[in-house]
Simulated assay, not measured.
Amino acid sequence: MSKDLQFPIRDNFDKNAHSVNFPIYATTAYRSPEGDHFRYSREMNPTVEELARQMGILENAENTVCFSSGMGAISTVFLSLIRPGDRLVLPVDVFGRTYTFARDFMSKYGIDVKTTDPGTEKVIDAIDGKTRMVFVESVSNPLLRVYDIPRIAEITRQIGAILIVDDTIITPIGQRALELNADLAVNSLSKFIGGHNAAIGGSASGSARMIEEIDALRRSLGASMDPFSAFLFLQGMKTLKIRVETSSQHAAKIAEELMAMDHITRVYYPGISDNEHHDLAKRLLKNYGAVVSFVLDENVEVQKFMSSLEAITPANTMGGVSTLISNPQTMSHRNLSDADRKRIGITPSLMRLSVGIEDPSFVIEDIRDALRKSTIQ
């Protein structure tokens, strides 16, 4: 089968009712001994298993396991594969909750957590013989730095360390980390995979051996996805390729327009030709993604700007069919210290725009109107 898959992948149709959509198995348990494969839904559920199968195909992975959230996936992966005394390397510009979990929780249990300044070179410089695990985002949240996964993977493989890549922002449509020699790919399914801001979930994909170890801990920790959420994600995956490619094209247009707008001092988007990560993005990514970040100048009142938007919704998430905007300082990275936000490059006036599938002209005009209403004269 071609690696450039055209979704939807055909469902494993229900053999009794022959339903077009894979059904929701709303049950806690299954009759034995017929149900030996499915015993208890915290451990395994047919709807969730179908989602894992589909995600495995999408990631081109041997196996996939799904979780109740993206953080459920990340925390279970960390706890499964790293031991007291091991070193975990990750840059500071990962999702805020990932960073605080590693720094504040994992370090309590004897893990040597080494955080680095942003960038591929900083991560590579921090990797040494003590390193057991490296965690990066293929495209970082929220400043959209592109990480050189093949280079990092070359180093980790030389020393026998595990490379985990969070592909949430670029999605497996834009990059398959496993094909670039990462050991595991994790995703927050709540974002672009689901696509409608209707369900919370996460996934981890990789070798059958590694996923088996992760899944065993998932069953004990209880970070299991419910079948209703799995059903919603299966529906979202049917339009994933169309949504992601459309939103990415719109994001590129919006980024160019933002660069020419008054009262915007900087635009972060790897598809812009003079972006510092553009050449790497051009080489590694199949599209530049649907997220654009930008900085308002000092004359714009941030909260008034957000409240003045009419077509764009301020919300602490991304990846839906409608365009959303967030202020990382007060939203996704609010739990970080001022010093850590400064290391990342997050300022009070930084905005993160998750571009939807609407006509981009409506988004552009909404930003212009909000700037007019919120700029101090």
Rank of each mutant, 00 (worst) to 15 (best):
E62K: 04
E62S: 08
E62A: 11
E62D: 15
N63M: 14
N63W: 05
N63Q: 14
T64V: 15
T64L: 11
T64N: 05
V65M: 09
V65A: 14
F67K: 01
F67G: 07
F67P: 02
F67H: 10
S68C: 13
S69D: 06
G70P: 01
G70I: 10
G70F: 11
G70T: 10
G70S: 08
G70K: 08
M71H: 10
M71L: 13
M71N: 10
G72M: 07
A73R: 06
A73D: 08
A73E: 09
A73S: 15
A73T: 08
I74H: 10
I74Q: 02
I74G: 01
I74Y: 15
S75D: 08
S75I: 04
S75G: 02
S75V: 06
T76Q: 06
T76C: 11
T76E: 05
V77G: 02
V77Y: 01
F78K: 02
F78T: 01
F78P: 00
L79N: 14
L79M: 15
L79Q: 15
L79R: 13
L79Y: 06
L79P: 00
L79T: 12
S80H: 08
S80R: 02
S80N: 10
L81V: 12
L81S: 07
L81H: 09
I82D: 04
I82Y: 04
I82L: 12
I82A: 04
I82S: 07
R83Y: 14
R83T: 11
P84N: 09
P84G: 00
P84L: 03
P84Y: 09
G85L: 10
G85E: 10
G85V: 09
G85D: 11
G85R: 12
G85C: 05
D86S: 12
D86M: 06
R87P: 02
R87F: 00
R87E: 14
L88W: 06
L88E: 10
V89W: 03
V89K: 01
V89Q: 03
L90Y: 04
L90T: 12
L90C: 11
L90A: 07
P91Y: 03
P91E: 04
P91F: 06
P91H: 00
P91L: 01
P91G: 02
P91N: 02
V92E: 04
V92M: 10
V92I: 15
V92Q: 08
D93I: 02
D93K: 03
V94M: 11
V94C: 13
V94G: 05
V94P: 00
F95T: 09
F95S: 06
F95G: 04
G96C: 10
G96W: 11
G96I: 07
R97N: 09
R97G: 00
T98L: 12
T98R: 00
T98N: 10
Y99T: 01
Y99W: 12
Y99P: 08
Y99D: 01
T100W: 03
T100V: 13
F101C: 02
F101K: 05
F101Y: 15
A102N: 07
A102F: 05
A102Q: 05
R103I: 03
R103V: 14
R103P: 00
R103E: 12
D104A: 07
F105Y: 15
F105W: 14
F105Q: 13
